[in-house]
Write a protein that binds this DNA or RNA. Sequence first.
DNA 1: CTGAAAGCGCTTACAG
DNA 2: CTGAAAGCGCTTACAG
Lengths: 360, 360
Amino acid sequence: MSRAPVRQGRRPVNAVDVAELAGVSQSAVSRTFTPGASVAPATRDKVEKAAKKLGYRPNALARSLITRRSRIVAVVMAYLDNQFYPGVLEALSGKLQALDYQVLLFTSPDGSLSDPMFEQVMRYQVDAVVLASASLSSALARECRKAGVPVLLFNRTTDDPDVSSVTGSNELGGRAIAAFLAAGRHKRPAYLAGIEISSTNRDRERGFRAGLAAAGLPEPLRAVGNYTLAGAEAATRELLSLRKRPDAIFCANDHMAIACLDVARHDFGLRVPDDLSIIGFDDTGPAQWRSYQLTTFSQPLHPMVDSTVEAVRELIDQPYQKARRTVIGGELVVRASARLPKQGLMDINGRRVWRANGES
Amino acid sequence: MSRAPVRQGRRPVNAVDVAELAGVSQSAVSRTFTPGASVAPATRDKVEKAAKKLGYRPNALARSLITRRSRIVAVVMAYLDNQFYPGVLEALSGKLQALDYQVLLFTSPDGSLSDPMFEQVMRYQVDAVVLASASLSSALARECRKAGVPVLLFNRTTDDPDVSSVTGSNELGGRAIAAFLAAGRHKRPAYLAGIEISSTNRDRERGFRAGLAAAGLPEPLRAVGNYTLAGAEAATRELLSLRKRPDAIFCANDHMAIACLDVARHDFGLRVPDDLSIIGFDDTGPAQWRSYQLTTFSQPLHPMVDSTVEAVRELIDQPYQKARRTVIGGELVVRASARLPKQGLMDINGRRVWRANGES
DNA sequence: CTGAAAGCGCTTACAG
DNA sequence: CTGAAAGCGCTTACAG
């Protein structure tokens, strides 16, 4: 005889209830709700009627237990005050939902997964993990792989050659910005760094320095903003208080560029771009706002998210395939925060962009 | 004899594997990972060693199946380009994680849950649903209740008296803004509406109109921005193109107020607040940026999120308790986008706020 | 196309 | 404190 239920409460209706009402087996109910399974139209009909009557919905957790597929993707994110990330999250979530995947969200103050958080990710049997935050220990990605869970890094890379990633053109973007500043006859460039150990910061700075050197410009002045508003404000004050202040600042992302621009204008009374050029990276929403009109190197949201979703699906299907680093192209979007060069400007798809001579 | 496994692939380690290695029963393994269960220290020790060695992690989905608790909360959100929501999401997710709940995120373009999305929410056996978006059919909340799933409305209410909600002081805020404008000797107020059928818009407008009437001011001019940037820009142009333009615009949220301010300044060449006062609602991050310095009625993030989490926990424990509508207080935060009244300004906790005479 | 049955990985009374 | 056993709600070979 069956014992008392483990926990009291109105028991939800299950497939057996539906089967009884429909006068078929529980297997038939299951097949009716499994896309592609073979059920006679008449059977399906009876089941659907009974299911509707009882308000039956298949239990996705029970299904996951046996299929070993939860259709849940963990997304780890931080810094949601940087508009780049909410945009990514909204697009990513929308696209995954359309493919019948659900997003389990993990946020952490500093963008790193604590051990208990990581344990939770694992316990929920997620089909894949998308790590979307600048700072994060590489150990984590390795742990996931060890547990057999596909990982994808979004907007960052790691040294581990076995971990796939999707990023923008960080190095190339940094280089383009240097060339753009040189073409605009700037003489004293500065670099406002993000989190120094992040791959985005490293690559953007590397490209920028290489580009400056190629153009015969001096090494950039430098201050660190750690990708935060407060950090960027302090770093800007630092740079603008130098005896010989820079005539251009490349900020490692738009989020900091906005703080930089506000400090330059309102605390130092500088005209942008007449007294100082400011360039960002990302092309987020606020970069386009009338008060900022930021010149910036874009990281195109939808191509990046599309690649991410595609990579996630491949990793789920073939967990041990070779890792792939996908780099999405961007453009130097020209608005009003930096002095214009004489050449290389063009209008493409309603946006003004800049390309070094010779590129098409 | 056991048959071939349903699906190939490296089988993850389960509690039986750990039990064998540790030389105990599977029950003992389960108890070791169940907080509060009774296990002898020596047994626990053996189990933990074996678990570590094998890389065992309890399967949360299997646990949910039997406990009927998934420890998953669905959060439905839209408009992540309005900075209010990412802030809410980050805080909510952080707080729920600290209580060992996970957030399953659902985003939809228009903030409403489509039928298939709703089906997914139900299939994942979430313990509760937080609906955080301005527009949303009330039918949804009813469906959830019918299915026995606790629902909480965040930043909106519905007519249904059985649905709990957490909101800011929308009506009171609208009233305070009207009083503030009157005290600042404005004569021609305007209201820039959000989504007209949303409860936030209805309540803010109602309070604003009541406050204007109480102060002897005329009915506001009016245009609809639908809580979007583009909508707010068009609505602002409409208002500022009137023969007798308003001398103050109350925008139903900060997101629109920023667009409004940019259009007023850059398209119409108006000085804010000398030529035109602009007031928002929410007190989001960008409202504080130097280029905007928005005067706005605050919806304090952490109190709202704390109440939400508390309400969710209560609803989970007592699903059929009486609904409660929690209203969180806010302040009229005074910055630089509206002309100042002579009286009622005070500095509290480093913020300048305004309160009508007589309030303390 | 259909049903009976095994099994996914757990929790939890129950009896010791 | 511990183990054997039932059962949570499904999917899916298998045999018909």
